[in-house]
Design a protein around this nucleic acid. Structure first.
Lengths: 189, 189
DNA sequence: CACCTAACGCAAAATATTTGCTTTATTAGC
DNA sequence: GCTAATAAAGCAAATATTTTGCGTTAGGTG
């Protein structure tokens, strides 16, 4: 019922976890959220339902767990030579990913989870990326806002729009948020 | 399965809706989310479970519906004489409400709903309040940012923190967001 | 190698959800 | 007002899901 990544991660546990996660991802390509069920996933994964219930608690937590896994920063964000450029580049691909149907489902699944810790991991994920981009800028000698300010000025409005008002989660808006957040930001308006 | 506020709102429907909503609110004071169930609510409301399933679809949607109802702006936000003051005053009471346990459950229930429309209503709710506070400021002749900018500068970071990083959803932060959003904002830091 | 035990499988029991059909009560037309 | 039409509720049987107790398997440990 908690987020278990440990205790006894040896062979079998890991195998079951992978089988179940894989089954979910597989089924998600075919069926909508409404059509997914624990017994169905268990069957596809070659496991008993009780295994899933005991480990994840319920369908919502399992889906959130699977979604969160995708959030791992696989590759370094693209470099553009300036903080504004880096933010725009990373942000655009992130927006693109999250406004897509699978991206929206992913957000939905994570938000539906009762585990606060999961959402905090999303926070940390974004924070890590902001820190990375900022670090680059600092190394180049650019004047940069704090990571906190980047979170408030860029990540927060972007995420807010992704969750509450999808139509306004656009690259154009992103430029505005970036311009208003960076030091020399006398918005051209 | 959709958000039905119409079609046949006469006596009985309204009565059932009220009975069910009331039963939910009642039960929520005693039991945790995990302990709530549709049959239980139906029983308390004096209705059959199938009535609830047919009207709301499932527990998550029902809870979201009940939560959303609480979000109606009951009373005019307090007046303080300045936009910054109004934002701070309203924001503080909002933060207070949403960081409380019932407030967090409310947010949770709304976010768990599959109905995008529900989240959009949250957006409209905040937007209405921002428009109201801004209108006051305009009438006083204050220089004010657009409603959009208030949403991005104040509502977005506040909501973001409430959802993802509760510890940083504080009045002190709120002041910062307000200061950085309002025109004459040369943050004292 | 042998013991300990977390995690899984299995199957029965308990709950929750769906569904077909009937009944009730609101709405609309007369 | 009275009646026909029908949305929404009730009821109960049929399904499906979730929980639980207990036996089994297989990592981890000394």
């Amino acid at each position: 019922m908690a987020i278990k990544e440990a205790v006894r991660p040896g062979g079998r546990s890991a195998r079951v976890q992978e089988a179940v996660h894989h089954a979910v991802r597989e089924l998600q390509t075919t069926k909508s959220r409404e059509e997914l069920s624990v017994p169905q996933i268990a069957n596809k994964a070659g496991v008993t339902p009780s295994t899933i219930y005991r480990r994840w608690g319920n369908l919502a937590e399992l889906l959130a767990d699977v979604s969160l896994e995708r959030l791992r920063p696989d590759d370094e964000p693209p470099q553009t030579g300036s903080l504004a450029g880096d933010l725009q580049a990373w942000g655009e691909q992130y927006l693109d990913e999250m406004t897509s149907l699978p991206g929206q489902c992913m957000l939905s699944d994570i938000m539906a989870s009762a585990e606060r810790e999961r959402r905090e991991r999303c926070y940390l994920y974004s924070e890590t990326i902001m820190a990375c981009l900022r670090e680059r800028a600092v190394k180049r000698g650019e004047a940069t806002p704090s990571v906190e300010d980047l979170m408030d000025g860029v990540i927060a409005p972007m995420t807010y729009r992704l969750l509450y008002d999808l139509d306004t989660a656009t690259p154009a808006r992103l430029s505005r948020w970036i311009a208003q957040t960076l030091p020399s930001a006398d918005a051209p308006d």
